[in-house]
Simulated scan of single mutants.
Amino acid sequence: MLLASLLTLLLPSLTTAADQTLNPDLNAKLMLAATNVDRQALLPKNEDWIFDFTQQKVYTFAPGSVVNANAATFPTLAGVGMTMAQLNLGPCAMLPPHWHPRATNLVVAVTGNITTWMVGENGVKVVTTELTPGKMTVFPRASLHAMQNNGCDNAQLISALNSDDAGTTNIFNTAFDNIPHEVLAAAFGDDEFDAGTVGKNIPKVGTGSVMGSAECRRRCGI
């Protein structure tokens, strides 16, 4: 039942693209710096210490985006062990089911009304939270989670992860793009399950946010 519900949420989805390393040479030098003095000498400008979320190429509310400040996009964070992300969700937008293999994730709502779902592992219950401004939830490392903006206006959240290379695995795109279709059919308990057709309905990698439930879209006239 849970898998079917998550699949229903995900079908119109778009997964989160992997961040491209902005300056591999600088990252390498920062990771090899013997002292903090040496490290700061590699970051001599005040501008080296500023990350503007709003100026990143993926920043959008149509339908939304995940904008990461991490070792790849902001070299100053190389070796620091932290990622900060700005989560933008347009009306009825959602982040489809995914997990972070190398980090626990704290998410706090800045604007909007957002529902989140989290499954820690087999045998535990689904944790559902309602986030409004100032409220926070936690997604433990490698837990499966998703979230949706329930409102007809933009919503924004701030996300902190305890790794500068947290990684993201979007469950259905990963499965349908990489697992043999006959194996997927067996996993669904239906030899007639047309994994190829279902897989084509899952959009390719993008900014991370997708349109959410039909109920919300009807209510907001989308």
Rank of each mutant, 00 (worst) to 15 (best):
67 V>I: 14
62 A>T: 15
107 V>L: 13
78 A>K: 11
66 V>R: 06
77 L>C: 02
71 A>S: 15
64 G>R: 02
102 R>H: 15
85 A>H: 06
70 N>C: 11
53 F>R: 03
102 R>Q: 14
82 M>H: 09
73 T>A: 13
59 Y>A: 15
96 P>Y: 10
64 G>C: 06
81 G>S: 09
48 D>G: 07
59 Y>L: 02
66 V>A: 11
102 R>V: 06
87 L>M: 12
62 A>G: 11
88 N>P: 11
104 T>N: 08
50 I>T: 14
54 T>D: 12
80 V>G: 04
56 Q>E: 14
49 W>R: 14
93 A>V: 08
109 A>P: 00
100 H>A: 01
72 A>Y: 04
48 D>I: 06
88 N>D: 15
96 P>M: 10
90 G>K: 09
85 A>F: 09
80 V>W: 09
98 H>C: 05
73 T>Q: 10
86 Q>I: 13
106 L>G: 02
90 G>H: 09
65 S>F: 04
102 R>W: 09
101 P>M: 07
62 A>I: 11
73 T>C: 10
82 M>E: 03
100 H>P: 05
100 H>T: 04
91 P>G: 07
91 P>W: 06
97 P>H: 02
63 P>S: 10
73 T>D: 04
50 I>G: 01
65 S>A: 15
103 A>E: 02
62 A>F: 08
72 A>K: 10
97 P>N: 06
65 S>W: 04
52 D>F: 11
76 T>R: 11
85 A>C: 10
57 K>G: 04
47 E>C: 05
60 T>W: 00
